[in-house]
Design a binder for these strands. Sequence first.
DNA 1: CGTTCTATTGACTCGATTCAAACTAAGTGG
DNA 2: CCACTTAGTTTGAATCGAGTCAATAGAACG
Lengths: 249, 249
Amino acid sequence: MEAGRPYTRLLRRLDSVVSLTESDRRGIAQIPMTVKNFANGQDLIRDGDISTQCILVLDGYLFRHKMANGSQRQIMSFHVPGDIPDLQTLHLPKLDHTVTALGAAVVAFIPHTSFKELLQASPQLTHVFWRESLVDAAIFREWVINLGQRDAIGRVAHIICELVMRLQAVGLAQNMSFTIPWTQSDVADAAGISTVHANRVIQELRRLELLEWDSRLIQIRNWDGLASLGDFSADYLHLRKGEPAIVTG
Amino acid sequence: MEAGRPYTRLLRRLDSVVSLTESDRRGIAQIPMTVKNFANGQDLIRDGDISTQCILVLDGYLFRHKMANGSQRQIMSFHVPGDIPDLQTLHLPKLDHTVTALGAAVVAFIPHTSFKELLQASPQLTHVFWRESLVDAAIFREWVINLGQRDAIGRVAHIICELVMRLQAVGLAQNMSFTIPWTQSDVADAAGISTVHANRVIQELRRLELLEWDSRLIQIRNWDGLASLGDFSADYLHLRKGEPAIVTG
DNA sequence: CGTTCTATTGACTCGATTCAAACTAAGTGG
DNA sequence: CCACTTAGTTTGAATCGAGTCAATAGAACG
C-alpha cells in the first residue's frame, strides 16, 4: 500500500485541475490530517450522522450507498484515491447516506475547522474544492441517465468505463486494467440490477471480448467497443485542466 | 404571472436556509439581473455550451435533461421558482446537459462576473450558494436511488412527493396541490419508464385515491400513502434552516 | 373544422427478477 | 492435511414488470 505523506495525494489530484500557488500548496501541506485504516465493509460515516471532518481517500476504495424501501441497497458512487467523498459535509454536515470501505482502505481525516480556515484564506482553493463538489454532482447526473435509460449490460459497461477513466486520471489504471475488491453483488447494487443478472451481464461482456474480468482484476480488451456499448463519453467527468480559476481581480 | 423585482425570489429562497446580513441583502439586491421570458420547450442553455451567466427561475418551471444512446431523453431534474439550475456553471462553465422551459417561464440572468464578485466579498453568501449546489447534488443522489431501486409506481410517487415539498418550501403548493405543465411523456422520461407505462401508473395512483391528476393539476389526497408508496423521506432535501454559516472567526 | 398533440387501451413480447440448486474458492479448526 | 463452513459465482426454469406496436379517443389549436 502506497500512502506517503497524506497531502501528496490531494496535491496531485488538485494539480490536475488547476495550477496552485506556492502559498496554497503550503496551506494544504500544513493542514492537520489523521490517517486511519479501514477494513472491508467497515462504515466510515453513516446516514444521519453529523460530520465534523472530511475524508480524503489515500489508498483503496470507498463507496457511498443508501437503503431504499428499508432493505434494497443502492450504491451511488465509488471513490478512488484522491477523492473526498464527503466534501459536501463542509456545508451540509448531516449525512443523507453511508460511506463504506470497499476492501481495505487508508484514508485521512481533515477537520472541517482547519479546512474552512484554509478556504477562507484562498479564493483559488475555494474555487478548486467547490469545483470538485460540482464534478461529484455531474457524476450523479450521469448515473441518473445510466439507471434511467440504459439496459443492464450498458449500465455495467458504463460503470467500468467511468472507473477506468477516473483511475487513469490519478495514475492507477495502467494499460487499461485495474483491480477492485468488489463482488458481483456490489456491481449489481450499483447498476440497479439483480445479482444473478449482473453475473449474466459480466459473462456477456467477457464473451464479447470487451474485457477480462477475473474475480477482482479487470482488464479492458476493447475500449471502443465497451465505451460504445455503455454509451460512454468522458465529458461529464470534466477531467481536463480547467478554465482560469481567478474569481475576481 | 407573479415576478416582482427579480431578486425577491432569490432572497426569499435564501432566507429559508440562513439569516442574511443587511450587507448581503444589499449585495444581492444590487446584482444586475436581466429578466427574460421563455416559451414551452425552449432551450435556455444547451449541452456543450460555455456559460457566462446563471439562470434564476422567477416563474414557471425548467427541467434539465440529456440524451442517452443518441435518442432516449432522460430528465434529471425539475426546477421551481427560486432555483438556480445552472449554479454549477460558476465553476464548471461547460454544460454537460440541456436546460429547457417546461411551460412558459420567466427567468433572470445573472452574469458570472458580478455573481463571483458578490461571493468573493462574502463568506456567508459563499456558504449559502455552495450549500445550494450541494443540495442539488443530494437530489441527484436520491434520483439515482429512485431509478435504481424503485418500481415504476414508486418512482412516479417519489417524484410527486419531491415536487410538492419543494414547491411548498417556496409557498407554491397550497393544500398539497399544484399545477405543472408537463405531459405524461415528460413524467415517463423523468422516471425512466415508457410513456404507455407512465399512463398506467398514473391511472393506478388515481385508482388508489392517493391523488387527483387532471391534466396539469395535481392534488394530493393521501400524503402518507403516497410517501409510503414512493418510499419518500424529505431528509435529502435539507430544507430546514441550516446550521451556523460562519466559516471562521 | 381539420390538424396535431396527448391520453388511453389491448395484445404481444422481452428483459430482468425470483427461486432454487450446484459449484468453486477460501478460510478455519481439529 | 482434511472435514466443515462460508462467501461468492454460475446455471436453469418459471414468472413478472415493463416495453413495443398499433389503434382509438379526446383535447387543444389555429
